[in-house]
């Protein structure tokens, strides 16, 4: 009987790995909702999310709160998640336009959803595989988010606003039980 060839992948999962993460219950409408913008500090992320927020204020009379991610490359620490949950009815995060920050946007989304807050994560379409892989690792395979064409960092101010307007319906769809936007 020959020796077995050993598996190098290990079987050790850290506490960050989750079996299955539930999706938050959606409101019927964003009317008067408290909307948190979680800005990941990547170039153009702030104007992009602020424009999405402004359009939501106009259309749905939402109240905005803004904060920047502690570190764009990794998921937010527990205490920040707690504050986001306490302060907001829904959260919009992005713009995931790099390897680690797109994955982190998906991870933040899954964690906030499990804590009961609907999330619209916005990533650029170059990073769909890595966002999907991260969501699956976090116990939410098939997790839905919104995408916009890559790149975002080099867009002019006007183009950023155009993009924000284009993604708005998907964002609303993701955050409410109306439709299946962003799928």
């Amino acid at each position: 009987m020959p020796n077995a060839i050993l598996d190098p992948t290990g079987s050790v999962k850290s506490k960050a790995a989750k079996a299955a993460a539930p999706r938050a219950h959606r409101p019927a409408s964003l009317k008067g909702a408290r909307v948190g913008l979680l800005i990941n500090t990547k170039q153009n992320a702030r104007p992009f999310l602020e424009e999405v927020g402004r359009l939501l204020e106009e259309k749905y009379d939402v109240t905005l709160t803004k904060r920047t991610k502690v570190n764009f490359a990794v998921p937010e620490p527990d205490e920040v998640i707690k504050e986001l949950v306490a302060d907001n009815d829904v959260v919009i995060t992005g713009v995931g336009d790099c390897g680690s920050c797109s994955a982190a946007a998906a991870a933040d989304g899954v964690v906030l959803e499990a804590a009961g807050v609907p999330v619209a994560a916005i990533i650029t379409d170059s990073f769909i595989p890595t966002a999907d892989a991260m969501a699956a690792l976090r116990g939410a395979p098939g997790y839905k988010y919104a995408t916009t064409a890559h790149p975002v960092a080099v867009l002019t101010e006007d183009k950023v606003k155009e993009r924000a307007a284009q993604v708005l319906d998907d964002v609303v769809g993701l955050l409410t039980d109306q439709g299946n936007g962003g799928a």
């Binding site: 050790v12 850290s14 960050a16 991260m134």
Partner: peptide, 9 residues
Amino acid sequence: LEQVGRDVD
């Protein structure tokens, strides 16, 4: 690597 939920022994 916390973000991917994996440890190495």
